[in-house]
């Protein structure tokens, strides 16, 4: 059986641009699991695919936008969130999803992340966190753990990493969750929840990078990394995101933020309606 036959049989085939397959990701990479969870969420919610837009930045996971069979845009490095902000405000009917990586969203695009969360723009950010810049060959980034080896930390990383769910919570997100690629059902449930919720949401997906980061740091094969995820993952409910740090021995996972707050778009539409009403009142006086 060749690749094409396999694809035709895939139950999620209609959600993919099949002519773009095979994808560019390495064997054992977590991006496929992330994408699969997203597509299953779409399938289970039976959302109108014409109203979904997937936007990505640059990096391995950035190619996801091109694979999904919905309107999609592959932006410049770090700029997926402000692009998505423009899309969502210009057409509020659309469900706007940003799928990108930790380096793209939190280093070069970090400022956009905190401001979109602060504004509570109604976009869903799914972040593949593989602790490094994979596409450029494994340099350290904003989530690389202390002491980790990358090609630009040849003596070990001396920078402290971001705790992404804490950053999201502090910046104003209405939903923040973290899973590894092992907890696929919970990940899918989180994506479904975010898609149905109004406001800025972050889902962090801790993801293996077997060919680059995991190899450099002697974490073993993809299967071994998944075993490690199983060993150290601790599921908690409403855990304090400030304390949800990631270490070798412990990855706290779960939903950290799940609150209700009017989105930027809602407040904007309410303000606009009020301005128009006031003007009409004044003009008829």
């Amino acid at each position: 059986m060749n690749n094409k036959d396999l694809m035709l049989q895939h139950p999620l085939a209609k959600y993919l641009r099949q002519e773009r397959m095979p994808h560019i990701w390495c064997e054992g990479c977590g991006n496929g699991i992330l994408l699969n969870s997203f597509l299953e969420a779409l399938d289970e919610l039976q959302l109108d695919l014409d109203n979904i837009v997937v936007i990505s930045g640059i990096g391995c996971i950035g190619r996801a936008a091109g694979y999904v069979n919905v309107d999609s845009f592959h932006t410049t490095h770090g700029r997926a969130i402000p692009f998505a902000t423009g899309v969502k405000l210009a057409n509020p009917q659309l469900k706007v999803v940003v799928i990108s990586g930790d380096g793209d969203l939190f280093a070069i695009g970090g400022n956009h992340f905190i401001h979109a969360a602060r504004r509570n723009v109604d976009i869903k950010v799914i972040c593949a966190n593989n602790f490094n810049y994979g596409m450029t060959g494994g340099q350290y980034g904003p989530t690389t753990p202390l002491e980790a080896w990358t090609t630009t930390t040849p003596y070990g990383n001396i920078e402290h990493p971001f705790n992404l769910v804490h950053l999201a919570a502090a910046s104003g997100a209405v939903y923040a969750a973290r899973w590894t690629t092992l907890q696929v059902r919970r990940l899918k449930a989180s994506i479904k929840k975010a898609l149905q919720k109004e406001g800025f949401s972050l889902i962090e997906v801790i993801s293996p990078c077997p060919e680059i980061y995991d190899r450099y740091n002697k974490l073993g094969t993809a299967v071994e990394v998944m075993k490690w995820f199983k060993l150290v993952s601790e599921v908690h409910k409403a855990y304090d995101p400030a304390k949800a740090v990631i270490t070798k021995n412990r990855i706290i996972i779960g939903e950290f933020v799940d609150i209700e707050k009017p989105s930027y778009g809602r407040l904007l539409r309410e303000m606009t309606a009020q301005v128009k009403e006031d003007l009409e009142g004044e003009n008829t006086k």
Binding site: V53, I55, F73, T75, T76, R79, P82, F83, A84, T85, G86, V87, K88, L89, A90, N91, L94, N111, H112, H115, L268, M271, T272, V275, K276, L279
Partner: peptide, 28 residues
Amino acid sequence: PQIGGIYIQMEDEIASIAAVIGASYAGK
């Protein structure tokens, strides 16, 4: 807002032009 349009002050000019490209692709 008087004519049903959208004004947003972004966090910098990089974000401004990114949002403008997004809005253009969304039909505005």
